[in-house]
Amino acid sequence: MKKHRVSGVAFEAKARIRSEGSPAYTLNLLTAAGIRVSEVKINGNTMCFTVGETLLPLTQKTLSDNGREYSVESVSGSKIKFRELLSRYALIIGAVISCGLIYVYSTFISEVEIRGNAEIASETISAIVDEYVKTPSLFGSPDFDEIEKAVAACDGIAYATVMREGKRLIVEVVEELPETEITDTYSPIPVLARESGTVTKVVTLRGTAAVEPGDTVQAGQILIAPYVSAGEGEDIPVRAMGIVEARVTRTEELEYTDEASFTSNAAADIEARKQAFVASLGANELFTGSSFTVKKLDKSIIISIYYEIITRIS
């Protein structure tokens, strides 16, 4: 059978024939002659059928030789074939457009997943990432390097990596470690007194107490010795640690250059100074009392105020 090929698409040309006479007899004639008949329609003794274009001469000869009346109604033209061809191209074009749309859709990022954060809120990181992905670019992808830099610049984040799984953007972060205080617990360092005073309380956390409540100590004196006893006179060196509180005396002086000023202002000044001193004390410092002395010099009068407090001296 004749086949035409246009732009790689093959099709068969067909001829439509109308014949008169017994349809069964006509069909038997044609098929016996090796003709393939299709799309048979009958109306009484009139029959329409289709044969391949190349079989048309043989069909006509067979019908003529056997005295059958017939007419060729149509031979399928190039317009029909071209339409078929177009329909196939339309299918291909449709498929290509569909693939394109799927690809474009797949370039959009619908979800941002944050991993590895514990201290920093996911919303904070997402807000940074969203600036880069909220405006998707056609046939493009967000700049992962830029996102990594932007996320890593966030306070508390040491490192960030960005990857993509389908329509999901995954941001993995490594947070900065909190600063830790390294304490040397092995060097044998004693606890020394920062101020002179009378010890009121000793709490030894590590080491051996060298003073006890009631002892008078001087600034720089060892309060807790840097060792612990292992028995039988053997000592193990440690870094001493503990809390030692003591009653200490702090002094302040007021100077008056004339008698009149001293007489009129001294009492108020002493009380004001005392109030100011108490207000300046820390939370762990306890004010226990005050006293003062007056010393007259040649050109001035000096008042010494003594404040007594209990404070930590270790």
């Binding site: 044609l30 098929t31 090796g34 393939r36 008949v37 799309e39 009958i42």
Partner: peptide, 8 residues
């Protein structure tokens, strides 16, 4: 009834 296709 119709003959869709027929050969020998």
């Amino acid at each position: 009834l119709e003959v869709n296709e027929m050969n020998g």
